[in-house]
Design a protein around this nucleic acid. Structure first.
Lengths: 345, 345
DNA sequence: TTGAAAGCGCTAACAA
DNA sequence: TTGTTAGCGCTTTCAA
């Protein structure tokens, strides 16, 4: 059995409560005693048992991380390690531990969240996704459990503290850039259509088209679900249209790389024939060929801010809900350029 | 305050211990009582407090995951989400929770591990890397704390349960394939040279060269550390040699993609001028251009097996150390091919 | 400034 | 088959 507070107390000839106070650096303990007790703690190799502490305290110093169910293995997306880095950095600074949800299906993740909440394993949760009619979000709201969302809530945005980019404007901007470069036929290839981020990026794209007086065409929309199985097919169709797009707005860098490959198979060149802009600025977007013009959404920062908000909230239940918007930045690389035949020639 | 075991006991008119036994599905409780108590638990919305349970039990039903310090942000490697999927799957099946280490530097990760161990937060740990003279490994061994390593231990391989691929042979095989295709000048580009996996892959490569009677040249070795800053430089040098390589064995797909890009900048074509083979079979290796010939090391399976071993060990301290070798498979794609001018022409 | 003691919610040995 | 009770290791109120 490990060294407990009692062992230290005995050795230091003080009461257990004194040791506890020393550990917590309680002000009412004399410098003398603190020094002496600390020395003994050190010598004996004392380390507090967090379970006991959690039990007595009703607080765990741990935060839970919920990721979208990983059932769709295709999404081996480096987004996750990167947010985690941000979260982990704050957590370490503040002596918080990190839990992650388990499970592969949506139902399993839901169970896992229930266990964290009811089991009092964590003081709060960070949700790494935001989707339409999400049961996890609903559950947390019902339980009035402390959580922060990375992304924009689908509902109750004013009750939910969230950290997000302005995806609408980012998408608007980047689409506008294509338009500005003379592209009139611009298609949108989106991620999972249940994700709010996909919707916002789609809206930004549409808004830009509308502003430019360009039509919004249904046959210019493809979604990730389509991309996987019938991906080749979908892209194929897109480029068989009477007016194939000369520009693509793609919701994720990883998808862009896949699309570039498909296009190449068909003898379509990027950026000569088609310009591509996308999102996230993953490491890969730099080493892709051509390197991608993409929106850097600062994934690390999203994680960092989310963790900070959560810890603030945990420490003070009165903390109002906030929204933190992490700025984005368009990174210009070679996947996009002027349209060959300029507009209105 | 949430519903406790006492509340349920009172409502069901039984002793708290009975409720506890029902929750644990203890055999000595009559079917009748179980049924009745369960119904009440349900009605009242009872959920056990895991901290209290851990404290009473001396067991947490949680496993910790230690990743290599993420300080080198460059490595936005999808390896991590993928092993995690494997681990998470087992964890969920067996009702285990998952902790992850926090911290960015090696020292911070070490602290974080200490906290998990001393604080009794977890029953066991999975180390996701194996490196030379690793202090975490040393610490765990000293503490006699239960853990499993993904990779091959640098020392004490017989005392440490580990899950690994046969990286030596894999590397040998894949190098041999290049040789078989007529390549005589084959260079090795490795990952972090403190990682055991890098060493093993290097050894396999060298062994194949030796077997073929080809010389092992120092100027044919590049390591990841070099790749980052002076990467361009290093590759540049490699291809300025009197006898530049016509084949490359690269320790990670992500690096391969970077290398291909650098080569392209220099007007060197893959696979026409240089053949590339690498490791991991990440999603990207399929959508890269050209798609990569690579060793599929079954990352998910590595995680799955590691978690299984760990839980076995946690449940039975007597469990002997084992080694699990997850089979690999070479996936042939377009990044490697016959050398243009065949050998001994 | 320090100590005594109750209690956080659960488990398990022992008793009935 | 079930109940009583003594902890698990820590915090915190109250008293000294």
């Amino acid at each position: 059995m490990a060294i407990t507070i009692k062992d230290v107390a005995k050795a230091a000839q003080v009461a257990p409560s004194t040791v506890s106070r020393v550990a917590a650096d309680h002000p009412s303990i004399s410098y003398e005693t603190k020094k002496r007790v600390r020395k003994i703690m050190e010598e004996m190799g004392y380390h507090p048992n967090v379970n006991a502490r959690s039990l007595a305290n009703q607080s765990t110093q741990a935060i839970g991380i919920v990721m979208k169910s990983s059932a769709d293995k295709a999404l081996q997306n480096p987004f996750f390690p990167e947010v985690l880095r941000g979260i982990s950095s704050v957590a370490h600074e503040q002596d918080y531990s990190l839990y992650v949800s388990t499970g592969e299906t949506e139902a399993e993740v839901y169970e896992s969240v229930q266990r964290m909440v009811f089991g009092k394993r964590v003081d709060g949760l960070i949700l790494l996704y935001s989707q339409i009619d999400d049961r996890v979000t609903k559950f947390l709201l019902e339980q009035d459990f402390c959580f922060v969302l990375v992304g924009k809530p689908y509902e109750h945005a004013d009750r939910i503290t969230h950290v997000d980019n302005d995806n609408f404007t980012a998408s608007y901007d980047i689409t506008w850039e294509l338009i500005h470069k003379g592209h009139e036929h611009i298609a949108f290839i989106g991620g999972d259509s249940n994700l709010v981020v996909t919707l916002n990026r789609l809206r930004g794209y549409e808004e830009a088209l509308a502003k430019a007086g360009l039509p919004i065409r249904d046959d210019y929309h493809i979604h990730a679900e389509l991309l996987k199985s019938g991906g080749r097919e979908a892209v194929h169709q897109l480029f068989q249209l009477d007016e194939p797009p000369s520009g693509l707005v793609i919701a994720d860098d990883l998808m862009s790389i896949g699309v570039i490959t498909m296009l190449e198979e068909k003898g379509i060149k990027v950026p000569e024939d088609v310009s591509i802009v996308s999102f996230n600025n993953l490491y890969m977007s730099e080493i892709s060929r051509p390197p991608l013009t993409t929106v850097d959404i600062q994934i690390y920062e999203l994680g960092y801010q989310a963790a900070k908000c959560l810890i603030d909230k945990v420490n003070n239940k009165q903390e109002p809900s906030k929204r933190v918007i992490v700025p984005y930045e368009v990174v210009h690389r070679q996947s996009s350029r002027e349209r060959r035949k300029p507009l209105h020639l």
